[in-house]
């Protein structure tokens, strides 16, 4: 799943999360997850002041964005001093799982 500013959303991407008015879960729901984005839909979201959407996979790579391996290496480096601690080990596992989830769908895998 990747969170994108609406400007970077393109037709053909699939929503990974519900979209709410005012970008807040207390707002009115506009569009459900698993919806295929179209140009018309993106224009409507724009009119409703939606600022960002979460889409499936990791379709947009920005310049300077780190690859999965780099992110993994950095995570290991941050934890190198405290990974032996049981509580920190829990946190490490959570972050690792999050990292894998955020990259999900890479290389053609599009299912959630």
């Amino acid at each position: 799943m990747q969170k994108l500013p609406l400007m970077q959303a393109k037709a053909g991407m699939v929503l990974a999360r519900d979209v709410f008015r005012g970008n807040s879960p207390t707002g009115m729901p506009i569009c459900g997850k698993d919806t295929l984005l179209t140009d018309a839909l993106i224009a409507r979201l724009e009119n409703m002041d939606v600022q960002s959407v979460s889409v499936q996979g990791h379709p947009v790579w920005e310049e300077g964005e780190l690859s999965y391996d780099d992110l993994q290496r950095e995570l290991d480096r941050r934890f190198e001093k405290t990974i032996q601690d049981p509580l920190n080990a829990i946190l490490y596992d959570i972050h690792k799982a999050h990292l894998i989830k955020s990259m999900e769908g890479e290389g053609g895998r599009q299912e959630e």
């Binding site: 950095e74 995570l75 480096r77 941050r78 001093k81 405290t82 601690d85 920190n88 946190l91």
Partner: peptide
């Protein structure tokens, strides 16, 4: 503080995640 260090967001001087203190937990 520990969580943000773990995320690697921003820069607080060093990059190491501090130990989670049992008493806080």
């Amino acid at each position: 503080d520990v969580l943000i260090k773990a995320s690697g967001f921003g820069n607080s001087g060093d990059c190491h995640v501090p130990k989670i203190q049992q008493v806080a937990w």
